[in-house]
């Protein structure tokens, strides 16, 4: 079953909250993971691995550095599950 962009955003917000305690409503599309949400590289990788499982997609190591904003992650995940 494919997830919509809204579902991916909501799911991602839950994963960010689980890992960092950041309130889900603060996980907005335009936010940068590092600059705005202050998520470090290790937490980012934990979120990525959990997102792979949750959305049944593959996010290669080399792709992670391109996921700068929440929008980037939502776009990548929705694109990857469509592929």
């Amino acid at each position: 079953m494919a997830f919509t962009k809204d579902e991916v955003l909501a799911g991602l917000a839950d994963l960010v909250n689980d890992e960092t305690g950041i309130a889900t409503e603060n996980v907005q599309l335009e936010k940068s993971f590092t600059d705005d949400l202050d998520i470090d590289s290790i937490s980012m990788m934990t979120i990525v691995v959990n997102a792979e499982e949750k959305f049944d997609v593959k996010i290669p190591d080399d792709e992670v550095k391109n996921l700068k904003t929440v929008q980037d992650a939502v776009d990548y995940i929705t694109g990857a599950q469509a592929a």
Partner: peptide, 12 residues
């Protein structure tokens, strides 16, 4: 080291 890659490999 490439810490992020190592972290994923080392844990999962």
């Amino acid at each position: 080291q490439d810490g992020q890659k190592v972290f994923r490999w080392a844990v999962w």
